[in-house]
C-alpha cells in the first residue's frame, strides 16, 4: 500500500512537472529573453559610467548574477534565471544611479 502510494504520488509529481514544463516554458522563456536583454542593456549602461558593481559579471566574483542566469536558462531553469536577472538588473541600475549621484564628488575637508 505504502509503495503504491509513493508510486502514485511520484507519478503525480512527474505529471505535475511535465505539465509545468509543457505549458509554461514558452512564456517563461519569452520572459527570460526580454529580461536578459534588459539586464544586459542596464549593465552596459552602468559600465559606461564606470559604475558597475562587483557581483554582476566580474570573473573573480563568486556570484556573477548575469552569467549565472544565462547558465540557469541553458539548463532549462528559467525561474531561477529570471530571479538572477532581476538582481543583476537591480544592481546595474543602482550602480548607474550611484555614478550619476556622485558626478560632482570631490574633496571636502
Amino acid at each position: 500500500m505504502k509503495k503504491l502510494l509513493t508510486a502514485f504520488s511520484l507519478t503525480l509529481l512527474i505529471a505535475g512537472c511535465n505539465a509545468t514544463t509543457a505549458e509554461k516554458p514558452t512564456s517563461l522563456q519569452a520572459q527570460y529573453e526580454v529580461a536578459l536583454k534588459n539586464a544586459q542593456a542596464a549593465v552596459e549602461k552602468a559600465a559606461a559610467v564606470d559604475g558597475e558593481w562587483r557581483d554582476i559579471r566580474w570573473k573573480k566574483s563568486k556570484k556573477r548574477y548575469l552569467p549565472s542566469a544565462i547558465k540557469a536558462a541553458e539548463a532549462g531553469d528559467y525561474k531561477k534565471a529570471l530571479e538572477l536577472l532581476e538582481i543583476a538588473t537591480f544592481q546595474a541600475e543602482a550602480g548607474y544611479k550611484q555614478a550619476m549621484e556622485q558626478k560632482n564628488a570631490g574633496p571636502r575637508f
Binding site: 564606470d50 559604475g51 558593481w53 544592481q91 550611484q98 556622485q102 564628488a105 570631490g106 574633496p107
Partner: peptide, 21 residues
Amino acid sequence: GKHFYYAKRGQLNLACADCHV
C-alpha cells in the same frame, strides 16, 4: 583620478576618501 578617489562606488557605497580621508 581625483574624482575616482572621492566618489562613492560599489554596493557598499564607499569612496576611497571615506576610509582614507
